[in-house]
């Protein structure tokens, strides 16, 4: 199905798709571009709120817990690192699924999609635990129990932005998992086998990688700096 292309191909000469991609994939790219502006706007407004305050809660003090850890154990960054690696690894299995699709390797697609879905659920479970934990500490929209790094009263901007942005990202992860499950069902029903190509997996893959990409930014902005 792949055709050799010489460097001098006249892409705009007619008879060809000048971007060398199918319509759906191009539109997925434009959707993701617009979505990156949505996330960008969220993160930049978070930054603006933070820059307009004299002090801000220290993420290492806020996010220092771990499931099943005894009371008083401080493990900053540990839990969120695990979440980050889960998402990176699920991105890897997704890209392996896309590559398997390129080679019409149905078994490879199924195996890697299942792994990706498991990764997605693992990430969502981690986030659910973290949200529950923060809620029990008294944090929620409109309520911030954490003090600023310099010991002054923290602003509710901190929790509002945290729950809004990680919630919006979590919603994307959830949607991505649903899309991947649909892809898995379609693969199991031989839809792509009959169609002759697995390009739909590629579009789902783009979405999933974007979710991982956004997490890279959210993770850095909220937990590291």
């Amino acid at each position: 199905m792949s055709t050799a292309i010489s460097a001098k191909t006249k892409w705009w000469g007619g008879g060809k798709s000048p971007f060398n991609v199918e319509y759906g994939k191009l539109m997925m790219w434009y959707f993701l571009m617009s979505d990156s502006f949505t996330f960008g706007a969220f993160l930049i407004s978070y930054g603006a709120a933070r820059f307009s305050a004299n002090s801000w809660p220290d993420p290492n003090e806020v996010f220092n817990t771990f499931p099943f850890a005894p009371e008083g154990v401080h493990a900053p960054l540990v839990f969120v690192s695990i979440m980050t690696f889960i998402l990176i690894l699920s991105s890897v299995t997704m890209v392996l699924a896309v590559q398997a699709g390129h080679h019409n390797d149905r078994k490879g697609v199924i195996r890697n999609l299942i792994l990706t879905i498991i990764g997605g659920f693992a990430f969502l479970s981690c986030q659910a635990w973290e949200w529950t934990h923060l809620f029990h500490e008294g944090a929620w929209w409109g309520s911030n129990p954490f003090l600023n790094a310099d010991g002054t009263q923290g602003t509710v901007n901190f929790t509002n932005f945290f729950f809004t942005i990680t919630g919006f990202h979590g919603f994307h992860v959830f949607t991505g998992v649903i899309i991947n499950i649909i892809m898995l069902i379609m693969t199991l029903n031989n839809v792509f086998e009959k169609r002759g190509h697995y390009l739909m997996i590629e579009k789902a893959g783009l979405y999933w990688h974007f979710v991982d990409l956004v997490w890279v930014f959210v993770f850095t902005c909220f937990y590291l700096i």
């Binding site: 990688h209 991982d212 990409l213």
Partner: peptide, 19 residues
């Protein structure tokens, strides 16, 4: 992530630029 996992690096230059 964008260049290799999303494969943007290997797309056609014009398309990369529109994004």
């Amino acid at each position: 992530i964008v260049a290799y996992f999303m494969h943007l690096k290997h797309e056609i230059r014009n398309m990369i630029m529109t994004i």
